[in-house]
Design a protein around this nucleic acid. Structure first.
Lengths: 355, 355
DNA sequence: CTGAAAGCGCTTACAG
DNA sequence: CTGAAAGCGCTTACAG
């Protein structure tokens, strides 16, 4: 069943493609096309179930109404929620999204950017892996509309939407201190030049300093991406046996999940034996045992703002003016740090808002 | 910075677009174009960083190398994992994917199918909501390549990839019976005409029958999609107080998560006070307390097979021959049903494979 | 060995 | 009020 084209309609009606196109694009009145002709065209288009070939339209108009999304992994809850939000916000404005998972691999990311550009997407939303400073700079030089999410490249002025990593980590650490922990271990992920990780680490340190607690570097552990589970086990054992830690703060959800597993394996009770907290809140944490205190990030807002900034750039073709957004995070106090030990129903705990 | 086109290269070299196109598509030798000319073309293309406009190419070739994916919600773990797998498998063959979330809304789904068709995707992968029998039939009549996942439409012969819902539910129920539970409640989700739900219910009933346990309809509860949490609370209370249930089997991951929350609220111990099992295994369940026994579905395989079937149809333009795949599921025994009460390390539990 | 031309399906400036 | 023509950037049958 061949798709019906403008030509088909024009031929059947004995008019020109021009006319049909004009009418169907709502420019009939503006161009003074007779009411009668307009009606005929619209009627036949309906009957034939005509729908314009968007590819042809895009080629002609130079706009694909498509945005490309590159994240580390679409199946990761953090990114899939952002993706949903992007899809939704973009959809409202007539844009659809093509997604790709770069696996934090700068090389793959580079190829994906190329593919998306060849497909002539109107814009890009990227959770860029760190290796691609040059690539990002190139995008900027090419005037390709794009916005970074979750991370940005220091020194390269671009649009970005991130969260207040520093404040969040600081607030969570402070919370731990207020409950009376002072030997708090910190786990971060290995490419520690990843910006969010750096900022979170700084937040942790600042909270300690503010409370006159010395920053002990041997309580800060960096875990290689490859072998999270085992590395955490090894390090946690050392920290517990040799450094008397009372609490542990994981800087992203992967680390937290692995840490939870290890502590269970050690048969340690949370928070009686050790307190646990996470940067990044995922569904899991609410229903884990015990429910986990975490900094939650505004997935939906990240997506919405990224799309708005992007579409605005696309529309106005603003070159140079860059928007930088730092969204507030939220400290969600649950039971994993012992603050509400007597509490049995986590749903009644009030959230504490940060900024 | 204007994108460079074939024309630009041709002009600069004083040759025709034809020649440049031929060379760049590797048809230089075949068409007997001189080695020298070929080299010049390739060199200049590299220097100018030429990349063909895929939109133009697609229009000409009548193939967009794009596949459309419609699921209920991309941020749901079940679908995001399948999406990842689809992206990966499709990517290997040069196809990229555009995704949309229908929210189980037949109307939205219909519109999304239209959008995707207007964009001239080469094929569609759909977790179709039930309402769209006609739409699916239309796709088939139009010879649009597509494959359904997770669900299919009874009586409409199409490609599909689903899992063995009946066997899985039967195996899990049998497991519960073998541990000595015989008053097993079942929770299903409300549009109970959703095929997977029907099949799972049948599996549950069959297991009971096989063991001579009467099927009590008042132990089977149907929960409306709108108000899962409260409905479950109400029904669980009734089942526990008035029907003496010993175990509860939830037919999808949303129900399980809500059920877990309610049982925690009731302060019931799992499995000492009540056993709990789930159809659909998500990350959460492995780390929940206690870890939850579940039927796990092969997300990756679902995606891979769907893509393979789809691309094969696209390539061969096979009309009529339809592939129907029912993938095996796996019973993952954890601690929520008490089978391994003395076990403290869930990671050492051996998985039991079904089919 | 190479090029002029048609055409994929649109939109839009231009002419009448 | 309406149409012929050009052009978006490709590919490919045809001609020489």
């Amino acid at each position: 069943m061949k798709k019906v084209s403008l030509q088909d309609i024009a031929a059947e009606l004995g008019v020109s493609k021009t006319l049909v196109s004009l009418v169907l694009n709502g420019k009939g009145n503006e161009k003074g096309i007779s009411r009668d002709t307009q009606k005929k065209v619209i009627k036949l288009a309906g009957k034939l179930n005509y729908n314009p070939n968007q590819m042809a339209r895009s080629l002609r108009l130079g706009s694909s109404k498509t945005i490309g999304l590159i994240v580390a992994d679409i199946s990761n809850a953090f990114f899939s929620h952002i993706a949903r939000s992007i899809e939704c916000e973009a959809g409202k404005r007539g844009y659809n999204v093509m997604f790709m998972s770069s696996e934090e691999d700068a090389d793959k990311e580079r190829k994906m950017i190329q593919i998306l550009q060849d497909r002539r997407v109107d814009g890009l939303i990227l959770a860029t892996s760190f290796g691609n400073r040059d690539e990002i700079q190139k995008l900027r030089d090419e005037q390709m509309p794009f916005v970074l999410i979750d991370r940005f490249i220091p020194g390269v002025k671009t649009n970005y939407v991130i969260v207040d990593n520093h404040k969040g980590a600081c607030a969570l650490t402070q919370h731990l201190i207020e409950i009376n922990y002072n030997r708090i271990a910190l786990f971060k992920i290995s490419p520690s030049h990843l910006l969010p990780i750096k900022q979170r680490t700084e937040g942790y340190k600042e909270a300690l300093r503010k409370h006159g607690i010395p920053v002990r570097n041997n309580l800060i552990r960096e875990i290689a991406f490859q072998n999270v589970r085992e590395e955490i086990e090894k390090n946690l054992k050392d920290l517990i046996l040799n450094h008397g830690i009372q609490a542990v703060f994981f800087l992203n959800n992967n680390l937290t999940v692995a840490g939870l597993e290890v502590l269970n394996k050690f048969n340690l009770r949370i928070p009686q034996d050790i307190a646990l907290a996470s940067f990044d809140d995922i569904d899991l944490f609410k229903y884990a045992y015990p429910p986990i205190t975490a900094i939650s990030q505004p997935h939906e807002d990240i997506g919405i703002h990224a799309v708005r900034i992007l579409l605005n750039d696309i529309k106005t073709k603003t070159k140079g003016f860059k928007k930088q957004l730092v969204l507030p995070v939220e400290l969600i106090v649950r039971r994993s740090c012992g603050a509400f030990l007597k509490q049995t129903d986590s749903t009644t705990i009030h959230d504490v808002h940060v900024s």
